[in-house]
Amino acid sequence: MAHLKTAVSKGDHTLGNPKAAKVLVEYGDYQCPHCGLAFPFINRLLDNYGDEILFVFRNFPLQESHPAAMMAALAAEAAGLQGKFWEMHDMIFEHQASLSADTLLHLAEKLQLDMQKFSQDWRSQELMSRVEGDFEGGLRSGVNGTPTFFLNGARYDHYNETYESLEQMMRD
């Protein structure tokens, strides 16, 4: 069984209870249809398990299959520098079928981001390095597709695109 090689840290994007006994890490791709299917399941898991879970999202853009994935990851990170990572994350998944530079700029405007700062950050080497760091950490952890989930450091290989399979992971 594969294990998470990069420990969860303050630099990660997290939702939920930082002291939770269950830490769920997703390596995801914003243009991946399977990640799009998992998105509402993760939100439901967070609603149902509340303080029992900490969720971490890490970027794993599969650029050969999903040409807009890197651009979307960089947009989420750029929004994160203005305190709106999760809002952009959610909006990107909600508009997954129409991802483009124009769509991402429209979403940033909708979030009332400082557009000059967003445009600069979106193209910055700093954010590119962050996304590449997530990707490399995923590779070291045995990630070879998206979404890939790790619960408390151990890869969970029984996700079958149902909410019930994620809920089973929480009960195991």
Score class of each variant (00 low, 15 high):
28 G>E: 04
105 L>E: 14
46 L>P: 08
67 P>Q: 05
171 R>C: 00
1 M>S: 15
1 M>W: 04
31 Q>H: 07
76 A>L: 09
20 A>F: 09
77 E>Q: 15
3 H>N: 14
143 V>D: 05
75 A>H: 04
134 D>F: 08
43 N>T: 09
172 D>F: 08
99 L>P: 06
131 V>G: 00
30 Y>E: 02
36 G>K: 04
96 Q>S: 15
51 D>L: 10
102 D>Q: 14
132 E>T: 15
59 N>I: 07
158 H>A: 13
31 Q>C: 10
112 Q>N: 14
21 A>G: 14
119 S>T: 11
151 L>G: 01
111 L>A: 13
148 T>E: 07
162 T>H: 00
102 D>N: 14
42 I>T: 09
57 F>A: 08
1 M>F: 09
38 A>R: 01
161 E>L: 10
171 R>G: 01
57 F>Y: 15
98 S>C: 11
32 C>A: 01
57 F>E: 05
172 D>E: 13
3 H>C: 08
142 G>D: 10
50 G>T: 05
91 M>S: 05
103 T>D: 06
16 G>Y: 02
152 N>W: 08
44 R>K: 15
47 D>F: 01
134 D>L: 03
126 E>W: 06
99 L>W: 05
105 L>Y: 12
32 C>S: 02
22 K>D: 11
12 D>R: 14
22 K>C: 12
154 A>R: 14
111 L>Y: 08
105 L>F: 12
97 A>M: 13
126 E>Q: 13
78 A>G: 08
24 L>T: 04
29 D>A: 00
170 M>Y: 02
72 A>D: 05
133 G>S: 12
118 F>T: 08
79 A>I: 06
95 H>P: 10
58 R>I: 07
71 M>V: 05
3 H>G: 13
75 A>V: 10
32 C>W: 04
86 W>H: 12
96 Q>V: 14
52 E>L: 11
158 H>R: 11
81 L>E: 07
92 I>T: 09
123 R>A: 04
162 T>E: 08
163 Y>A: 00
117 K>F: 06
36 G>M: 01
121 D>C: 01
79 A>C: 12
42 I>N: 05
2 A>W: 02
54 L>K: 15
54 L>H: 06
12 D>K: 12
60 F>H: 01
93 F>D: 04
131 V>E: 02
133 G>D: 07
97 A>H: 15
